[in-house]
């Protein structure tokens, strides 16, 4: 089982259509509004970044494919707002609110935008999980790129890199574990590494022998090779 967003290494998508260097940041006004509404709703604190990524990944393959980029954002946001009880499906259907929200005090107001955006949301955390690997160590990824905590849940090991052997390039520190955090199961921070793979290991015949692909992978995805 897989999800539609996990498309690395897929054939058939055709040429990359490169935007002109002077193309506007937002091709349509509603793209800008979609981004801003999404960030403003994130500031309500009802979900984390991993949950919102998973909301987009959970779109049906049909919707994921036919929706443009910001349509996916809108659909994921609408689903999350209802799932978390911020809005009701009836309100979405009517296009109007039934009444004010108890969360209104958390509303991101204009004067707080600069600080909210510049503060960001770092994900490095103290962790009592010791780093098992060091640069140069050979490691193998999970045989199946799947969330082992929640069936069909969020994971950041792409299918194209499952069951592959590579070499630890660097330790980034301990970061929040998305497989847990996306599902309200806690941040569960653990060591995360940049792991370098030979392109031939991932894809069989590489474009050029010796080319490499590097992924950032949590320790839970890795075992000694």
């Amino acid at each position: 089982m897989s999800r539609i967003h996990d498309m690395g290494g897929r054939f058939g998508d055709g040429k990359v259509e490169v935007d002109a260097p002077d193309a506007p940041v937002f091709a349509e006004d509603w793209h800008a509004r979609a981004l801003a509404v999404t960030l403003a709703c994130g500031a309500l604190g009802q979900w984390n970044l991993d949950t919102s990524r998973h909301a987009r990944e959970k779109l049906s393959p049909r919707d994921y494919t036919r929706f443009s980029y910001y349509e996916k954002w809108m659909a994921g946001l609408a689903d999350l707002l209802v799932a978390k009880g911020v809005l009701t499906r009836e309100e979405l259907t009517k296009g109007h609110a039934d009444g004010p929200s108890q969360l209104a005090e958390r509303c991101l107001v204009a004067e707080n935008v600069p600080s909210a955006l510049s503060k960001g949301g770092p994900v490095d955390r103290p962790s009592d999980v010791a780093a098992k690997f060091a640069p140069g160590d050979r490691v193998t990824t999970r045989a199946r790129a799947r969330n082992t905590l929640v069936d069909g849940g969020h994971t950041r090991l792409p299918t194209y890199a499952q069951g592959a052997t590579g070499t630890i390039l660097r330790l980034h520190g301990a970061h929040v574990f998305p497989d847990s955090n996306a599902h309200g199961l806690g941040e569960a921070p653990e060591p995360i590494y940049a792991v370098v793979f030979d392109a031939a290991e991932l894809f069989g015949a590489p474009e050029r022998v010796g080319d490499e692909v590097i992924l950032d992978l949590w320790q839970s995805y890795l075992s000694p090779a």
């Binding site: 509603w30 509004r33 509404v37 709703c41 809005l87 109007h96 609110a97 004010p100 509303c107």
Partner: peptide
């Protein structure tokens, strides 16, 4: 997008 913005503004959730 406009519909979401309208509902959320009415609820006091976005400025």
């Amino acid at each position: 997008v406009k519909a979401l913005e309208t509902i959320l503004t009415e609820k006091g959730l976005i400025d």
